[in-house]
Design a protein around this nucleic acid. Structure first.
Lengths: 347, 347
DNA sequence: TTGAAAGCGCTAACAA
DNA sequence: TTGTTAGCGCTTTCAA
């Protein structure tokens, strides 16, 4: 019983049980109108032939797969692992499986995931965009259930779940200012013309500085090639070597912040005494670092629940094309040791 | 063009282009024997009708899906994220997509993943078992390509990729002993009768102690409910509060070790001066902690490559049922600050 | 309560 | 180079 060897079909089971294929199908799907005796016969035949439903055939017939796709840039970044877990949990009550795909943050791969979903490998797709930009909005015609996660595509013709980037970043920066920071570095990915996480969070950072009457020093804006720990550490080294006078660092993600903390430690800079550090995402690791990392908690579960909810709405009522919706989740600032807060906010 | 509205089929395209469905199929699949003129006509019709191949139909027809499943306990644990990334990378050159499923470490969900794969949703399955035990070996009849990752099922009738648990744990413990530790705690999950990671690694730990002529103190064996950071921290607190005299800790995974490091910091215990700590897995985070974490590097890429290789072998030649193979990967001990090593082993 | 007919959309094999 | 035939294995519809 394996591909290449013979696999029993529903017809085979029907023949063996002396019934029709339809009856076998009814037994499998728990249809009520099957007599107990028939059911027994069928189940026995199924067991005897080691029968397995062919899901490809069922999917073709039903026009549904029961699976939604989740496309994320890098599955081994703590943030996306956390997000994936939350989405799986949110999809389960709807009877939906989640297939996770990695896009490597490439525009091309993101479009590929979109194509797979449109080609009915999935009933719908949750796409965490990094590579695609506003110029790709055309791909997002609503001919198939899609929810965009992230910041790259605004005002597209599609449901969108985002973080409160500007507001939360302002709050995080304000937190540093309240703790006495005056010269705050901003560590981000490339900040371009486009709408992306780094520029949105930078806007919030700027607002907080202006609000507090602090100067905007362009030299304080640092860039890393990738939002990784390695690049975060490198960035901290450069910051220290440049002799820049800095008493606070706002990192665009917790992952980068972990690297920055390590880089500062390499240089013998004490956190939070000499420099305070805050991140963004509240990944699980952040609460366990030494020093534990202050950060913005974007409420992953709320975002996941909403993303799945928006998708399910379109899957279940394909005809009732509701207006695209924009959901911005709540946030809280979590004060931990890296900004002079308490060691632990959990038990 | 959406489910519920009308979606063009290959027949529609054929009609619109004035050719047969077969010719459309040939164009789509890049068959060489299509004249340029015909190809153009077909492509134009496809664009006009916004045609999308139906992958369910193709899968049914071909008897393959081009997708392999990867079932892991928790996708938001750094180790599994890393593993998943490695497997995706290893599968790509074979033209295979990877769909990641989360089993929550439940036996039942693991069996479900197995069923899905057998039902031809996937061409094969890489299953990281935690919940299933030796008593479930019967489910692993080789009627479908499956590779088991992990330690729970030994001698099953199926390909198996494992870490060199005993040997590497002995080396890790020896490393602590060489660095002067004499009373080494062992932090693990529940250690039962069954073959599992914790008991295998404990065996290696014991061997190293015996080898060095050190006593085996059962009080040094600590257990955590889950291999999580939170439980690791709790365990460290208990260890310190118990007043136990300890100068080294071997943690069964890096994730637990991160918690232990945090817990020791809470108690004001200095690492590595007072206590040295070593983990197992070499997750990305470990190199960036303060202090950076010494650990065992099991060569994720080698394991991933082998797992995919074994699976592909069975997918491509289903008839040639090769003997089940057991692969145990290589390992290295990475000495970092938590055992008095250098700060960083990367740039 | 059960079954017969039909077809979901695609491609392998063969024919023209 | 293109087209015809057949059928992958299942479930919807309707009849018995």
């Amino acid at each position: 019983m394996e591909p290449g060897v013979y696999m029993a079909t529903m017809q085979d089971v029907a023949r063996a049980a002396g019934v029709s294929a339809m009856t076998v199908s009814n037994v499998i799907n728990g249809h009520p109108k099957v007599s107990a005796a028939t059911r027994e016969k069928v189940l026995a035949a199924m067991a005897r032939l080691d029968y397995r439903v062919n899901l490809s055939a069922r999917n073709l017939r039903k026009g549904r797969t029961g699976t939604i796709g989740l496309a994320v840039p890098e599955i081994d970044r703590p943030y996306y692992g956390r997000l994936a877990a939350a989405i799986i949990a949110a999809a389960a009550p709807h009877g939906l499986r989640v297939a996770i795909e990695q896009t490597s943050a490439l525009r091309e791969t993101e479009l590929e995931a979109l194509a797979l979903s449109r080609n009915r490998l999935y009933d719908g797709l949750i796409l965490s965009t990094v590579g695609m930009g506003p110029q790709d909005a055309e791909w997002l015609v609503m001919d198939h259930p899609v929810v965009i996660l992230g910041e790259r595509i605004f005002g597209g013709p599609v449901d969108h779940v985002a973080m409160p980037n500007v507001e939360a970043s302002r709050a995080a920066t304000r937190h540093l200012i309240e703790r006495g920071c005056r010269r705050i570095a901003f560590v981000s990915g490339a900040v371009g013309e486009e709408v992306d996480v780094s520029s949105l969070r930078h806007a919030g950072y700027q607002e907080a500085l202006l609000e507090a009457g602090l100067p905007l020093d362009p030299g304080l804006r640092r860039r890393v090639a990738a939002l990784s720990m390695a690049d975060g550490a490198r960035c901290a080294h450069e910051l220290v070597e440049s002799g820049l006078d800095v008493d606070g660092v706002f990192c665009v993600t917790d992952t980068v912040a972990m690297g920055v903390l390590r880089g500062l430690a390499d240089a013998g800079v004490r956190v939070p005494d000499q420099v305070k550090v805050i991140g963004f995402d509240n990944v699980t690791e952040s609460g366990f670092l030494v020093p534990s990392l202050s950060t913005v908690d974007p409420d992953h579960d709320a975002m996941a629940a909403r993303a799945v909810g928006l998708l399910v709405r379109r899957i279940e009522q394909p005809a009732s094309r509701p207006e695209p919706e924009e959901f911005v989740g709540p946030y809280t600032v979590v004060a931990r040791e890296s900004t002079g807060g308490p060691a632990r906010d959990r038990d």
